[in-house]
Write a protein that binds this DNA or RNA. Structure first.
Lengths: 186, 186, 186, 186
DNA sequence: GATGAATGAGCCTTCATTCAT
DNA sequence: AATGAATGAAGGCTCATTCAT
């Protein structure tokens, strides 16, 4: 039988989600339906597998987000990203949980981490645009990005849909916008 | 030495921060300056140590936060909590990182997790008060709490001080308040 | 190697005989000529190994005893069993000593103990037959069985052969038979 | 408080009986009601404790058996020994079980074993007398002694009393006596 | 003499990784 | 390319023994 790296990675998502970061490669292989030896034909190292899994998921997310209408306002484009991102997470919560698990547990290597970050350059640019349009709080852009991302994660973790998802977006946006209110007290 | 128990916990903070969730008890003992066997005189199990460490840090934080002026407005009291919380984290960033590491990695036992949660009942009540005062977005309180906590974590992780810390609070508050804005678009 | 499992058991007999119940799995593995990890591919637990070893030896003994001529007298059949049993023990004294060591040290699990007991149902039946023929002392059959077994063990431990082995059988039989003598004094 | 070696030994009997040969010295000390350090003030080594315990019990048994009426017949004197021995075991079964446990598990050192054997020289002499009287099977005396001892152990383990205890003695005696029957078949 | 914290060697077990088939 | 037995380093934990108080 011919296994593809992505077959293994897809199966690994569920295993990690259900059994935690500590699963042994042996157990992982068993659940994937492959002999343990085979696993190492595809990923020479456990770390390689972890990194590949992380990138796999991040790439999947990035392509789900795609591009946004460059002519729309920053907020509208942000809303578009928000919806796709949250939709991606809600469609398969395990993927989302595993991404958090891998990053939170410090399991992902620095290289993979950096490579994944690049995939979201477009999203970062979006914040740059908004900043240029002048409606953002006066804080370092990476901080604002982190604030948004934290709320995306929460929206997904809570499986928000419909109106709730929209409100959550407004909450996120309110935290980085509303310059009047903020500068007043800063 | 009679204070060895807390000596171990203190050392564990640094070790876990520097070497990750995977550190061996042996390395930990070495860093404390005791033999590996001695560790187990104080914590019968690695899990016990982890749980104790988590509670140790959470208790420390809870007592650093203390009580708030019950006669002040919800926002003012929230601000007070915010400042103390962020100050606690910034004073010793390793403590904060380790708390996140322990929770994020799923390393803490359910019992310890629950026990720690109780310590922050007062903080939760604060949100209840605010809700009763009518200034909050119409979302489940736990969600709002999570949004705030996520931003506390970010403020600490970024070591925000002075004006930046204040702005970050306004950002957090803006995300859960400003009902007019939010309901308008919901 | 496919027969490694029994290779391990065979080696375990010698090691336990020479080094006692306390041998480490590491020493055992070394004697078999495999790495310590390999041991656990065959026996997930030290206890599993002990139980398997006990059953291995008991099964070996049971098959060495085989069946007896159902048409012979109880005593003749007992004699047959006796000879085969003692012969088995004398042929490889270590096996016999290890069986005693495992049982005497309380090392064998209850399940294995029960499973092994079943193998000797036929031998027990033999005493039933004798009892029905009416030549046994009036004591609980299990007690009589134990008296015989104790003497088998002694015969083996002393490596009795030839005439001595035969005399030892007569001794054993005399202890449970000779009703006249016994009832007289009971 | 002043502990006596024999206080510790007495307590150790129950502990070993209930928890097996594997009890840790710490647990033993706890159950005896002494700090673990104290244990080593009395017995420099675990082995010393085990050996002392074995000797303690054997001495106790030896003194319970005492001397026999030198003018009686060998069998009568054996009967006297038998009764006292079995009575000793039945009076406190734990002592008996522990003796068997210690010897069966190979836990007793050679020196202690030898020293204990000496205590029963009188009992051995009894067999010598019997042999001289000419009533014994023609087998090495130590073998006959072992056959008897095995049956004593069984009688005690089964808690035989009254008539049953007497029958058991006749069984034991029958196994080493009745020369006519035995020599016929030897 | 009693104590109990400290010790560190050693035990059982796990697991990422290798490699002959 | 797939397999799975073998490996051996490493981990968590136990416990007999020591020793300062």
């Amino acid at each position: 039988m011919k296994y593809l790296r992505s077959d293994i990675l897809d199966a690994a998502v569920d295993v990690l989600d259900q059994e935690g970061l500590g699963v042994s490669t042996a157990r992982l292989a068993a659940r994937v339906g492959v002999s343990n030896g085979t696993l190492f034909n595809y990923f020479p190292t456990r770390q390689d597998l972890i990194d590949a899994l992380y990138l796999h998921l991040k790439r999947d997310l990035a392509s789900a987000i795609g591009d946004t209408d460059g002519s729309a306002s920053a907020k509208d484009r942000a809303r578009e990203v928000w919806d796709r991102w949250v939709a991606w997470g809600c469609a398969a919560p395990a993927r989302h949980r595993v991404v958090l698990l891998l990053k939170g547990g410090g399991a992902v290597g620095a290289v993979a981490l950096a490579e994944a970050a690049e995939l979201f350059a477009g999203v970062s640019n979006l914040l740059d645009s908004a900043a240029r349009e002048g409606d953002l709080v006066d804080m370092p852009l990476p901080y604002l990005a982190a604030v948004i991302e934290a709320q995306v994660d929460l929206a997904v973790s809570n499986g928000l849909r419909g109106a709730a998802r929209a409100v959550a977006f407004e909450m996120a946006w309110a935290s980085i916008a509303s310059p009047t209110l903020h500068t007043a007290s800063a």
